[in-house]
Design a binder for these strands. Sequence first.
DNA 1: CTAGAACCTGACGTTGACGTCAGAGGCAAG
DNA 2: CTTGCCTCTGACGTCAACGTCAGGTTCTAG
Lengths: 127, 127
Amino acid sequence: MRIGELATQAGVSVRALRYYEEQGLLGSVRSPSGQRHYVEAAVDRVQLIQHLYAAGLASRTIAELLPCVDAQVSTPESRATLSAERDRIDRQITELIQTRDRLDAIIDLTTRPDLSGCVIKEDSYAM
Amino acid sequence: MRIGELATQAGVSVRALRYYEEQGLLGSVRSPSGQRHYVEAAVDRVQLIQHLYAAGLASRTIAELLPCVDAQVSTPESRATLSAERDRIDRQITELIQTRDRLDAIIDLTTRPDLSGCVIKEDSYAM
DNA sequence: CTAGAACCTGACGTTGACGTCAGAGGCAAG
DNA sequence: CTTGCCTCTGACGTCAACGTCAGGTTCTAG
């Protein structure tokens, strides 16, 4: 599998894949002419990388953690990084839920029929 | 309340507050000498801005939505933006939960006692 | 065999939310 | 009055994850 097809299948750009390799996140086998070739499993790996990026992890952090995924082994440092990032994501989720609920409240407030123009109510008071 | 105290109370930098004003997110009253003065409610507003930034909204989007919060009224466009962002945050939460669970699985796999050194199992096969 | 698509390596450009520095003025205390 | 902290307005710097362009090679379909 060459870089263009991997890009298509994983839904990222060719440039991104080269960047991942540059950051030590994604390996490739080079053909004699220098072209990158990937195994099928690379699709999943790229998507994992994307999810970790989306969760706010930096390249360096991902580069530190991916070997654990590969070798299924963790050092004390990587264990610390793993649980730290896990907890950070957890707090991020909590905050996002609050913000989402806040947006819901705003939507509710601003969508609800505007009672300020409801003069009839005042008439009923005047009775 | 001057800019330094607002920065302290809201937990952001002075530079950030000037930036918010520049982006039209945060108003201030100027003293004759040109210094910014803020009302108490500015603390909450700054924290709302921070939460919206943390949720991935851009300055322009926030600038578009804050008037709704203030006036409690929404235009058709702002309603669309509001629900679009709400849904985006919702998807983001879902993805973050998946990534967190993925990290949990990795932690579990790499922390668990290493069975690869357990040769006794192979002996039991050899029986 | 040839055109066009895909690939390569640099290397500079982009974007957003600020950080930081320079130079100048403002304000309360002693 | 002056010392020291706070504030002001530009304006350039930063950082990360790519985008984009240049200039050249390689693969593939007809």
